[in-house]
């Protein structure tokens, strides 16, 4: 009973807090540019409105057009439930859960890309092709980062892997994971979430044909993914799990906020880069994770 209640509270926290992050990023961007910007809660309003709207579906789209976003959302929420939250740990924790998390993210990618191709639109194809191709490199970086964490702690359970900070390699790993965060969540410099030019979009081009509740589910899923990566990154650097519950929660919240502000600053200060340069940056992220892995291996020997 208590476990069910605890899981429900945890899920509610994830689902309710996630849309805050894009709002914070937009606020930071507006602040740097000297504008007032949209309210921090803008995404909540958008989601509420989309949820009430009717749906326009392409005549070509199969039921997968609706099923894809739903399954992707479930996968992302499931991944969020696996992610430990500081001293509270994860909802379910077992050996190898970290791999389930990585592959749930992949499942979400599969479903989003599949739904993007449903309409037969060239833009959907463009976005999906870019997403899955760049993901090849970011997946390598992510797996390497997970390896570094497991070598450092001698464990492959998420809650154990994140309870210690990685030590000397932490900064390298954090930099590498930050690159993965930007790429996986389609932020500048990999993709511009605010662009209105279909030819240069990645994630936005994939969801161009969605509308109404399915679109709301996609947007909400994307914000869960962003929060997930921010939490992961915070716990890689800070030993949140070892603090007392109150201090741990406060530290985690502060760190997530700091990561979000960093994303906003990166977005304000850099331009998006040409597509052919994306592999270079992702390779650099991979190399950072690889060096962290080697440091972890050497540190133990």
């Amino acid at each position: 009973m208590i476990i069910a209640l605890e899981s429900a509270v945890r899920l509610a926290v994830w689902l309710l807090l996630a849309p805050l992050l894009p709002g914070v990023i937009n606020k930071v961007k507006a602040w740097v540019a000297g504008r007032r910007g949209p309210p921090v809660l803008q995404l909540y309003f958008d989601l509420a409105r989309l949820w009430r709207k009717s749906v326009v579906m392409s005549t070509l789209a199969s039921p997968g057009f609706v099923a894809g976003p739903a399954i992707a959302w479930v996968a992302l929420a499931g991944a969020a439930m696996l992610m430990p939250l500081g001293p509270a740990g994860g909802a379910i924790s077992f050996k190898g859960d970290v791999l389930l998390l990585v592959y749930l993210l992949a499942l979400a990618r599969f479903c989003t890309a599949w739904a993007a191709l449903e309409t037969g639109s060239a833009f959907g194809g463009m976005g999906a092709a870019r997403e899955v191709s760049f993901a090849v490199l970011s997946e390598v970086a992510l797996i390497t980062a997970v390896l570094a964490l497991s070598v450092q702690t001698g464990n492959i359970t998420l809650s154990e892997m994140l309870s210690l900070s990685v030590g000397s390699g932490a900064m390298l790993l954090a930099a590498g994971l930050f690159g993965v965060l930007l790429a996986e969540n389609c932020r500048v410099p990999f993709d511009d979430p605010n662009t209105h030019l279909e030819l240069t979009m990645v994630h936005e081009a994939m969801v161009l044909d969605h509308s109404g509740p399915p679109f709301a589910v996609i947007l909400h899923g994307a914000s869960i993914k962003l929060l997930l990566f921010a939490v992961l990154l915070s716990q890689v650097v800070l030993p949140v799990g070892k603090l007392s519950p109150l201090a741990g929660t406060a530290t985690l919240a502060g760190a997530v906020l700091a990561v979000t502000v960093c994303v906003g600053l990166v977005e304000s200060l850099t331009a998006r880069m040409a597509f052919r340069r994306v592999p270079l940056i992702l390779t650099a992220s991979f190399l950072l994770c690889l060096f962290a892995l080697l440091l972890a291996l050497k540190g133990g020997a």
Binding site: R277, P279, L280, T283, A284, L287, L290, F291
Partner: peptide, 10 residues
């Protein structure tokens, strides 16, 4: 290329 030279260097 940039990526190959980066990988070579690493």
């Amino acid at each position: 290329g940039f990526v190959p030279s980066l990988l070579l260097g690493a």
